[in-house]
């Protein structure tokens, strides 16, 4: 991936988000029921949708890594899950704010979507201690992929089970048979969804670039360490490993 692609997509992200938030504040009608606080919906819902999609995509990349044994897919899987966890924090925080504003409590156990999201989020939080508890690089990649696949299969199951266990009070904005969203709200929501999605893609690309650069640096460092002819030119900066013993 070139730096130019990153620049283009960053600019697209910024423009889409500005347009989206402009529409949120100045164009969409006030919600008759909830008033101004309903506007957090344009951030909260896209964050959670993008995070969940990212988790599933991480599972698919894990599957591709196991099939092709290409480490690029493992890197993708890691970065997807990592950024989805970050977006998940955002979704939980905005969700709690909305819950406090509209139901009066920061946390509502009767709300299946909230609870399922928390379970999924907690599960993906264990991805980090699990991944970094394995030292061997290849094994780490393989095990992380197995985790990503298992967790990806778990996401829809979990949503189903939690929803069946409780009553439904979450606003089902798209599912209601009559009414639903007015066109202006739906349009703004889609723009915001696109903006948050683009933000996710930008951050993914940035993270991949960083990971790749640091991988290259450590490869170069290892090559320098392994090549005794070059050691003189490096001077004292890199410890001459093995010579002391």
């Amino acid at each position: 991936m070139s730096g130019g692609g990153l620049k283009a997509i960053s600019i697209a992200t910024v423009i889409t988000l500005i347009i989206g938030f402009g529409l949120v504040f100045f164009w969409t009608p006030m919600d008759a029921d909830q008033g101004f606080k309903q506007k957090i919906f344009y951030v909260h819902v896209p964050l959670s949708v993008v995070a969940l999609a990212g988790f599933i995509a991480g599972g698919i990349e894990g599957f591709r890594h196991l099939r092709t044994n290409n480490n690029r897919h493992d890197l993708n899987s890691y970065v997807f899950i990592h950024l989805s966890v970050v977006f998940g924090v955002g979704a939980l925080l905005t969700g709690a704010i909305w819950a406090k504003a509209s139901w009066g409590h920061w946390w509502v156990w009767e709300e299946p979507t909230l609870v399922s999201f928390l379970i999924v989020f907690l599960m993906y939080c264990t991805y980090y201690p699990f991944r970094y508890a394995i030292e061997d690089r290849d094994r780490q990649a393989r095990y992380a992929s197995v985790f990503a696949i298992t967790a990806g299969a778990f996401v829809p199951l979990n949503f189903m089970a939690v929803r069946m266990a409780d009553s439904i009070i979450h606003p089902r904005v798209f599912a209601t048979s009559e009414g639903g969203l007015p066109a202006s709200m739906l349009f703004t929501f889609l723009i915001c969804l696109l903006g948050i999605g683009l933000l996710w893609v930008t951050l993914v690309k940035l993270e991949q670039l960083g990971k790749r650069a640091s991988g290259q640096v450590s490869r170069l460092r290892r090559a320098l360490d392994a090549d005794p002819g070059r050691r003189g030119s490096v001077g004292g900066r890199i410890a001459p490993s093995g010579e002391v013993r």
Partner: peptide
């Protein structure tokens, strides 16, 4: 089998397993 080959195996089993069995326990 995933946890046993890592450094923190006794720690990882409950950590990984508990969220995964939530739907099973609900049922």
């Amino acid at each position: 089998s995933m946890a046993v080959n890592s450094r923190a195996r006794d720690l990882l089993v409950p950590l990984l397993l508990l969220p995964l069995v939530v739907p099973l326990m609900i049922a």
